[in-house]
């Protein structure tokens, strides 16, 4: 009886590990970036084209991942607590008016790391295990 319970408990722990298989997402900027403390809300506003300029006349350059990648979906859903479709609809509406443009899309995390490491105003997101020293992590999305 006790053995059965122990087995079930172990099974549950194992299952829960595989459930948490999603990686943490790191919000990254240039190491000499002027804005070292950004709130989640500011990040949202930057990615949604609302926050167009930061103090000291820095114009933030948000970088997006390739459309259809699970990382992108996880990023937006974690960041805004809204489904990706919502975000797409938002951009569709804004783009219709022709004034705003969504963040620039890059093919993979390596490209993101490269652009961020080269541009002091850039801001991007990658899986936390891909973070290297060329960038600075603002915070992690969990």
């Amino acid at each position: 009886m006790r053995t059965v319970a122990k087995f079930l408990l172990m099974l549950a722990i194992l299952w829960s590990h595989t459930g948490l298989a999603q990686p943490r997402i790191a919000i990254i900027v240039h190491p000499q970036c002027s804005f070292t403390h950004l709130s989640i809300k500011q990040v949202v506003d930057i990615y949604m084209g609302r926050l167009l300029s930061l103090p000291d006349n820095h114009i933030p350059l948000p970088l997006d991942q390739q459309g259809g990648s699970p990382l992108r979906e996880q990023f937006y859903e974690t960041l805004t607590d809204r489904p990706l479709a919502h975000i797409n609809a938002y951009w569709a509406r804004l783009m219709f008016s022709g004034r705003a443009t969504p963040p620039r899309m890059l093919p993979d995390s390596l490209s993101v790391l490269q652009v961020v490491s080269q541009n002091r105003d850039a801001i991007g997101y990658v899986e936390d295990e891909k973070v290297n020293s060329s960038v600075r992590v603002l915070f992690y999305l969990e």
Binding site: R50, Y90, R93, L94, S97, G98, R99
Partner: peptide, 17 residues
Amino acid sequence: YSAAIALYASDAQIADD
């Protein structure tokens, strides 16, 4: 929703619509 977007993004065109 459209109004909220217009206000959020300060988009005059959508606001006008």
